[in-house]
């Protein structure tokens, strides 16, 4: 391993602890919006909840890898990307919440639970 590869951010343990603390609230926010999207009756309602879930997933995808949870970061990124693809796609005008997004978010929340437990 080179000297450069050993570079690490000082105080990373403290930041990691804060990330894990925040992950508890963030996973709950994501799960609530995912369930609300699943139960949504209109396209606007579904899309608004998916957009809100996406925003929180985006935050996790941006930092999880740096604080030592790369797999969680990838999982958040995949969830986020699926939501973006749906919202940018032709089905966004329909009052349908794709099951694949909800299953993926369910897996993601389970991964969060393992970290926050």
């Amino acid at each position: 391993m080179t000297a450069a590869a050993k570079l690490e951010i000082p105080g990373l343990d403290r930041i990691r602890d804060r990330f894990v603390d925040m992950l508890g609230d963030r996973k709950t926010t994501i799960a609530q919006h995912a369930l609300a999207a699943w139960d949504g009756k209109t396209a606007d309602d579904i899309n608004a909840n998916l957009t809100a879930a996406r925003a929180t997933l985006h935050l996790i995808a941006g930092t999880a890898g740096t604080v030592g949870f790369p797999e969680l970061g990838h999982s958040a990124l995949h969830c986020e990307q699926e939501i973006i693809d749906h919202l940018d796609g032709p089905d966004a005008v329909l009052a349908v919440c794709p099951g694949e997004i909800i299953w993926r978010i369910d897996d993601f929340v389970a991964s969060c639970n393992k970290i926050t437990a």
Binding site: R18, F19, M22, L59, G62, T63, V67
Partner: peptide, 8 residues
């Protein structure tokens, strides 16, 4: 807007 990023 993410405090973790700012702290990092």
């Amino acid at each position: 807007d993410d405090p973790i990023i700012l702290e990092l």
